[in-house]
Design a protein around this nucleic acid. Sequence first.
DNA 1: ACAACAATTGTGAGCGCTAACAAATGCAAA
DNA 2: TTTGCATTTGTTAGCGCTCACAATTGTTGT
Lengths: 341, 341
Amino acid sequence: MSKSSNGRLPRLEDVAELAGVSHQTVSRVINNHPNVSKATREKVEAAIAELGYRRNTAARSLVTRRSQTIGVLASELSQYGPANTLLGVEQAARDAGYFVSIAALRSVGRGAIFDALRHFTDQSVDGIAVLVPHSETLQILEEFNPGVPVVAVGSLGNEAVSGAMVDQKRGAELAVGHLIEQGHRTIGHVAGPGDWIDGALRAEGWRAALKDAGLPQEILHEGDWSAGSGYEIGRRLAADRTATALFVGNDQMALGLLRAFNEAGVRVPDDVSVVGFDDQPESGYFTPPLTTVRQDFEELGRRCMDIMLKEIEAGAAVSSTVVTPVLVRRASTAQPAAGSR
Amino acid sequence: MSKSSNGRLPRLEDVAELAGVSHQTVSRVINNHPNVSKATREKVEAAIAELGYRRNTAARSLVTRRSQTIGVLASELSQYGPANTLLGVEQAARDAGYFVSIAALRSVGRGAIFDALRHFTDQSVDGIAVLVPHSETLQILEEFNPGVPVVAVGSLGNEAVSGAMVDQKRGAELAVGHLIEQGHRTIGHVAGPGDWIDGALRAEGWRAALKDAGLPQEILHEGDWSAGSGYEIGRRLAADRTATALFVGNDQMALGLLRAFNEAGVRVPDDVSVVGFDDQPESGYFTPPLTTVRQDFEELGRRCMDIMLKEIEAGAAVSSTVVTPVLVRRASTAQPAAGSR
DNA sequence: ACAACAATTGTGAGCGCTAACAAATGCAAA
DNA sequence: TTTGCATTTGTTAGCGCTCACAATTGTTGT
């Protein structure tokens, strides 16, 4: 940080003096106003470089009431999905020249969400991305009008709030469709928590796909996304072998399931087929390598920022975008054994 | 956001008017200055509540040159370690009443790091946490004096920069010591990239532990932390079975290794023992469940903020802290088969 | 040449807050 | 009462920037 001779950081006035122009002209240069002559602009730029001038963001946002900052409200950041979505949003925001302020929620509730949103409005953020994958989030967001664009990532949004999401139902249909194609007729689901949007939507997609195919939709277990919960459910499933195939809500629970089956001597895919969801980088190295549904979280983040920027810069209306997931076939699925129903 | 009747957000002056005091008295109340009478304080607080007043952070930080914000400079956020350290730092910062601004580096280099640091000084952050696990980082940080405390997470720091790290060498010794105890005499290492601090330190710890025990330190392969690289190395290792045990730089590479061994018919732990590093939540559900070294990333984040806050608030000197890792014994290690050397 | 207009540059005010100082008040001791 | 001192409150200035407007310059057509 270069200091001017008087020990202070240089400000607009100092640059103006050195360049022999008014402070306002300097302001025009740094804000790329069109009506500045080339000669003046060069003089000013030289002075800026010489002094190592940097604009004071506090002063700027005091008067403009904007801060070139996007607030990201996130929860469950230790999970693969939210963490990578954050990454995607952050990258897209920086590419667009915005800073990112983050607030991680420890618990999801009206109070905590309001606090975080207020914190963002205090900072005069230009937009807010909400990465809170719980169903009640959207409702809560509706009640709070921060005066800047809000994009709810992982939901479709509504009239007041934009949305960016992966088509979870489509993903579930992809997974279940694949199993049906293989010849499976009894396909269970290991769901994520019902109060997560994704969890609910995947379960819905599973149910719909089975219904369309005229198959029963009885076998449903709810986990908490963790490998541990997948393991517990896997033990129960190993004991009650009604299903010949399982669609699991995420790859981590699938890993737990695989572990439980392995311990119980249930072979995958010979005895039971398993499909996961997410396609984490490790999923191809499970035993056996996991067939799963890939969601592109970075793309999701980029789309979120696309929408946000359009709202911020072009004053576009609230809208939404959907990212399509893709089935990744690996070794955890196969045709059901001839003997099974 | 409640607006005053004139359509503007309320400011200090509005509160002062309503409470019948001067704006400075209101300022004293919101900053908890001691010399305010109880009666006045209550009047002011009532006015604040009535108007829904919120302090303008831009105005405040314009004059104070502080922003109640911690900048977190991070890279490799898609990795388990950095992501969870970020989480730890964020939580500790919020607990202490600080906001968190984040900059994710796409590539690690002097230019990118300087840009990010300048961005933080532009924002008048009160402190900077650096989560960039590459060896050259510390050097680069030395050259840039942002004028606020800097804590390099994942390194020991130096005279200019504080550090908070997990004792990687100790962790490596824990892992290797465990294998030696089991009776292994030929212990290989699958290292992370040499330009990562952690990767280098773990390799060093592995070498030191073997040297102390008078054992050879020849078998060393370098991966890139990914399960894929672990798999590739695992295939080579399955073909050349010199080592009876492997210490692997992280759990993901260990997963790849396990997969390769499984495919090649090498049994773990019967034929080869494997120890990982990190203890990710999934590691207990690998096939077989992985013996590994646990690092507590959230604790790391907390310690980082402890140091930072002491520097910010008490003007404490640059210092450093070390978190001790713990060995988690599971099923991937056993005594070497009787026949092996 | 001049007026008419566009392009460029400058001036003054004020965003909302805190720091430094000044003034007013309360209360105990002389 | 009066002085002296601590406690509480008020006043003024200014942080560094952008906005709205005013003033100046350059350019063109007649």
